[in-house]
Amino acid sequence: MKTYARVGITLALIAAFAATSLAVVNAITAPKIAQYEQKVLEAALSEVSGGYALGSSELVNDNDSIVELYHLVDDNNTLAGYILQLNGNGYGGQMTIMAGYKVDGELLDARLLANSETPGLGKKAESPSYMQKFVGHGGLSEMPIKTNMLDKSDADSVSGSTVTFSAVARTIALGSNYVKELGVK
């Protein structure tokens, strides 16, 4: 009995000490992390807005893949497009994509935010240039959702990370279709 008590108390002491030190570090770093996340979000919003001003935003409840919708307005204050915060499923699990569209569903620009893709392969999708292959599509021209719909240099650049590519492409295409339906309503 005595040994069990000693073992239990020792483990409890170590765990309590670890928990306390983590709480201290968390108290110091949490505000910095929140600040950083907010900055990333704002930067992404302005990058994908295509030069339009940001209007009101609302949470989206009727589609599981879409979290939030921001309205984009032009200089005359008329609706020019939307920005959607989308959830996709990549190679490493859930990913967050911020994508701006014109009202007809054409992609203005997109950014891959939080993700768990493989460093050096799928992670390359984080760079702004990665999204260039989707920009301008989704409206009149079809969104490339398969690698054989890309031209050769783009197809080469996604080799080794096809799962990430399809996840990003499908998520952006889903957003484009959602925006198209909004236009009809």
């Binding site: 020792t10 483990l11 170590i14 670890a18 030190s21 770093t29 950083y36 768990s116 460093p119």
Partner: peptide, 30 residues
């Protein structure tokens, strides 16, 4: 006991990197 100690240090590294060098934090991911 070793795992608790190691996990505590890893979590500290993770939080500190996320707060102060977010680019390295993002590159290392999982």
């Amino acid at each position: 006991a070793y795992i608790v100690i190691i996990a505590a240090f890893v979590t500290i590294v993770e939080m500190v990197m996320h707060a102060f060098v977010p680019s390295v934090y993002n590159a290392l991911g999982i």
